[in-house]
């Protein structure tokens, strides 16, 4: 049996690179990412500035490293928020059934009826456009998906005979929920959380690109792209590298997500 696929390997390498860059950006970068250098504006990549400089003469590589940190941080917090809220809501809803389930799911479906980033945009209008506004907005926007997946898993697990066996043994509802149901929900939660991490990073950069995310001068990949846009003809690297960073990160997450799904999804397991 192949335990880890080629996809999973590439995905892991890309994600490891992302995390390393983020960690590196925490302590060290080749230059101060905020330091303006009016003598070295819009310089092409060179041995001094590997990825060139931007319109204010700031080092692009340094800003990318610090931007990685912002992406990972926002992604992690958003996913944690959505996973905790969504899992709790899904568990309660799937386990309680009846009118509690009906009410929770009606609200959940209404939230899901807002297309993707739109709900986040609406919430940003309320919370204000900054790092924590984004985390809240995206966290709330993603929770319903997690809730739906967890509820689905709970409902299908409830039909499994080992849940009935637990009932016949005289075990209480809470015990059954945490001993038998939750551990068996880990696989779908992990798979979804992985994709969510990607959605969060993408949405954050899209919002920053729109000017609704982390405000400049703090660097994120999205606002670097937005800032580089007017200079893209003279300084291709300003448009190239931040986007490449986002794309490689997303590719890593997608590949890792596929590998996880193949490994964790019991339906796929049965096929081998």
């Amino acid at each position: 049996m192949k335990n880890f696929t080629f996809n999973g390997l590439i995905g892991s390498i890309l994600i490891a690179a992302l995390l390393l860059s983020a960690a590196l950006g925490l302590f060290w970068s080749p230059y101060d990412p905020m330091k303006l250098g009016f003598t070295a504006r819009l310089e092409a990549p060179s041995s001094a500035h590997w990825l060139g400089t931007d319109e204010f003469g700031r080092d692009v590589l340094s800003r990318l490293l610090v931007g990685a940190r912002a992406s990972v941080w926002i992604g992690t917090l958003t996913v944690t928020f959505a996973t905790v809220c969504g899992t709790l809501i899904g568990l309660v809803s799937g386990y309680a059934r009846g009118w509690i389930d009906a009410v929770i799911m009606a609200v959940n479906n209404a939230l899901l009826a807002f297309p993707g980033i739109l709900l986040a945009l609406g919430l940003l209008a309320v919370f204000g456009a900054n790092q924590y506004g984004i985390i809240f907005a995206l966290g709330i926007a993603y929770s319903p998906s997690m809730a739906r997946v967890v509820r689905g898993a709970v409902l299908s697990l409830r039909e499994r005979e080992f849940i009935e066996a637990s009932k016949v043994m005289g075990n209480g509802e809470l015990y059954t929920m945490f001993r038998h149901i939750l551990p068996n929900c880990v696989a779908p939660i992990t798979v979804l959380a992985t994709s969510m991490f990607g959605w969060a990073i993408l949405s954050e950069s899209a919002l920053s690109f729109l000017g609704l995310g982390v405000p400049p001068p703090a660097p994120t990949w999205g606002n670097m792209l937005a800032a580089g846009r007017p200079f893209i003809e003279q300084a291709v690297w300003l448009g190239l590298f931040p986007g490449l960073a986002i794309a490689l990160t997303l590719l890593g997450i997608n590949l890792l997500g596929d590998a996880l799904r193949d490994k964790l999804d019991p339906r796929m397991r049965g096929l081998k």
Partner: peptide, 9 residues
């Protein structure tokens, strides 16, 4: 995996 805004650019 390619973000649309980057691809567009």
């Amino acid at each position: 995996s390619i973000p649309t805004f980057w691809l567009g650019l």
